[in-house]
Structure formats: structure tokens, C-alpha cells
């Protein structure tokens, strides 16, 4: 709603910019099955784990979007959109709304537009993004250092000291790894990278963390070249 006393937050941001981002969310192909109408019953908030720990309410997302309250939308986009754990407990909504789905779309819009809030929220994940996008795996055994996990007790020291041996006791050969969660072939890594690139995911990364993007591109394009791939061939297939 266009209140006479607008909220103090983000008043410096032009209305047109807020409206543009709002329209981008609503133009998403998933939108029409994400929000019907909200009666503000609060069942989504009651079910929401994040709502117990943060000043966060999935109901407010449904409500603000249904009312087309563009100023409040912009506030949410820059703040509590990052407090959701994306567990989708909120989909028990009697109107079949999907507040978590609204947030999915809003996060993508925030990332695609390089909003500061997206950069801040994802900063801590740079290393994980790099690992996932270059290898397809996330948590590696050697990340489990005793210093980081004192609550695991003294045994974790023994395991860490002989990590390589312990890993070789796991039956599948592909798990005889310490730096990766499992053995990933070069072919898989390259195909995965090409999927990220051709589906626009790399562009999203570029918007929020240019450093990681540059390292990733350099390492992976070199690997592509070594293996005799030309990314342009794939791009022309997509076109």
C-alpha cells in the first residue's frame, strides 16, 4: 500500500527500481502457482523453524506480495528473505500458497540483480560455491578437523590423523578420497561446469562474487582446453 507515512527504510531507493524488481518476481513462470490469496491465519509461521529464531515471518511475504505492497517487498528482498531455511514447512497453507517458493523466486531476483544483501548473505559460502561448481561435491572429509569440532570428542583426533586409512576402509572405491567427498572424474567436472555456464548460473555467481567467478572460470576453462573441449560448440547447440 502506498502509505502517506512511508517507512523510513530504503526511502532513497526510487519507486521505479522497487517496482522493477517486484515485476521481475511476478514475471517468474512459477509465480502463478506460488501465491493465491492469504487470509493471514498464521499456519505458515507456526510451522516455520526460522520464525522461532529470527524476526522472520513467511506470512508477511504472502501478505505483502498479495497486496502488491512494493515498499515492504523491497524491505523483505533486502533483509528477511535470507532468514528462510527453505524447508517448505509453510506449504501446509490452506490456500495452497507457497511462501517458501515466493522466497526462492525473490532470492533469485536478488542474486540476478547483484543486490548487496545477496552478496552479504552468500559471502560465507564462497568456498562452498567454488567446491560445488568445480567438483560437484561439497563437504570433504579433510574439512572435519578436530579444532573445528571439539564436541566430537577425542576420537576425531585419531580419525583426522589417519584420515586416508579410515577412508580406504569404506567399501566403494570412489570414497577413497580425503579432499573430495567422493571421486569425481574429470569428465563429470567438465560437464557439470558446462551446465552451470550454459544455464546462466555462472552469471549469477559473477553478480554476487566476482573473485570466485574469476578463479572458477580460469581453472575450469583451462581444464576444458586441456581436454580439447570448446565451450562455443556447446553454446551454439543451446542457441
Amino acid at each position: 500500500m502506498d502509505a502517506i507515512y512511508a517507512d523510513a527504510k530504503y526511502q532513497e531507493v526510487p519507486r521505479e527500481e522497487k517496482q522493477r524488481l517486484f515485476d521481475e518476481v511476478k514475471a517468474d513462470m512459477r509465480w502463478n502457482e506460488t501465491l493465491y490469496g492469504c487470509y493471514e491465519c498464521g499456519i505458515c509461521v507456526a510451522a516455520c523453524p526460522s520464525a522461532r529464531f529470527y524476526d522472520f515471518s513467511p506470512r508477511v511475504f504472502a501478505q505483502v506480495m498479495a497486496r502488491e505492497d512494493v515498499d515492504s517487498f523491497y524491505e523483505l528482498l533486502n533483509d528477511s528473505v535470507w532468514d528462510c531455511s527453505q524447508c517448505f514447512s509453510c506449504t501446509r497453507c490452506p490456500r495452497q500458497n507457497n511462501p517458501g517458493g515466493i522466497i526462492t523466486i525473490m532470492r533469485e531476483v536478488a542474486v540476478n540483480n547483484g543486490l548487496t544483501s545477496a552478496k552479504d548473505a552468500l559471502q560465507a559460502y564462497s568456498r562452498i560455491i567454488y567446491k560445488v561448481m568445480s567438483t560437484g561435491t561439497q563437504v570433504a572429509p579433510d574439512m572435519l578437523q578436530p579444532d573445528f569440532f571439539p564436541d566430537w570428542g577425542p576420537d576425531v583426533v585419531a580419525v583426522a590423523d589417519n584420515l586416508d586409512v579410515w577412508r580406504r576402509m569404506v567399501p566403494p572405491e570412489t570414497l577413497h578420497t580425503t579432499e573430495l567427498a567422493w571421486d569425481v572424474s574429470e569428465k563429470t567436472r567438465l560437464e557439470l561446469y558446462m551446465i552451470w555456464k550454459l544455464t546462466g548460473n555462472l552469471e549469477m555467481i559473477e553478480q554476487i562474487d566476482e573473485g570466485i567467478f574469476m578463479i572458477l572460470e580460469e581453472v575450469m576453462e583451462e581444464l576444458l582446453e586441456e581436454n580439447g573441449y570448446d565451450i562455443d560448440d556447446f553454446e551454439s547447440v543451446i542457441d
Binding site: 500500500m1 502506498d2 502509505a3 502517506i4 507515512y5 493471514e40 506470512r59 508477511v60 501478505q63 515492504s72
Partner: peptide, 12 residues
């Protein structure tokens, strides 16, 4: 008051 947002408003 928008009671679900918890704040008073004046709207033209």
C-alpha cells in the same frame, strides 16, 4: 492499523 503488520497507517 494494519494489525497483521502491526503498524498504524494513514492512506489517501
Amino acid at each position: 492499523e494494519d494489525t497483521t503488520k502491526g503498524r498504524p497507517e494513514e492512506v489517501a
